[in-house]
Amino acid sequence: MGVDKTEIGTIFDTIRELVNNHSSDHLLAFYDLGSAKMNLEMVKDLSDKSITIKVLSDCFKKLPKMLLLK
């Protein structure tokens, strides 16, 4: 989310637009780098929506345990 089609990186305005246009009031957002986290946190601070922000690597750490449970 928020990745420009021509360059690597997140764009605050794109993230804000996607959050504002999303129909849900509760969103879950993942990031991989510190700059993406910073942009997500700024959008969260300026939005009326509830946004849970998670680092992408945490998902991969839990994945093997989740697969074992199945």
Rank of each mutant, 00 (worst) to 15 (best):
E7F: 12
I8Y: 13
V3I: 10
L67H: 05
S35V: 06
D4R: 07
I11S: 09
K5N: 15
V55T: 07
E7L: 14
D32M: 10
C59S: 12
P64W: 09
G9R: 05
S23T: 04
E7C: 11
L63H: 08
I8E: 13
F60H: 07
L68Y: 12
K65V: 11
T52E: 11
V19H: 01
I8V: 13
A36G: 09
H22L: 06
F60D: 11
D25A: 11
H22N: 15
T52W: 00
R16Q: 15
V55N: 14
K65R: 07
N39G: 09
L40G: 01
L27D: 00
F30Q: 02
N39H: 07
V55I: 13
G9P: 03
H22M: 06
I15P: 01
L63W: 08
R16E: 15
G2W: 02
D32V: 10
L69F: 02
N20K: 05
R16T: 06
A29S: 02
V3W: 01
A29Y: 00
M1D: 10
K37T: 03
N21D: 12
M38T: 10
I8G: 08
S57D: 12
T14N: 10
T14G: 05
K62A: 15
L63R: 11
K49V: 07
V43R: 03
S50F: 14
T10P: 02
D58A: 08
K37N: 10
H22P: 00
H26I: 14
E17P: 03
D32F: 06
H26P: 02
F30C: 03
S47M: 04
I11C: 09
S50I: 12
I51Q: 00
L28W: 03
E41G: 03
L67E: 12
I11A: 06
R16W: 09
C59V: 15
L33F: 07
K65E: 15
L18G: 02
N39E: 06
D58Y: 05
T6W: 12
N39K: 04
L68C: 14
E7I: 14
N20I: 00
N20A: 12
E17Y: 06
S35N: 05
L67V: 14
M1G: 13
M42T: 14
I15K: 01
I53D: 02
F12H: 12
L69E: 13
T14P: 01
V55Y: 11
R16G: 04
D48I: 01
T14K: 12
E17C: 12
L40K: 00
R16D: 15
L18T: 05
K65N: 08
I51C: 09
G9Q: 09
D45L: 02
G2Y: 00
I53F: 03
V55E: 14
L56E: 06
K54I: 12
N21A: 13
V43K: 01
V55G: 08
L46M: 09
T14Q: 11
R16F: 14
G9K: 06
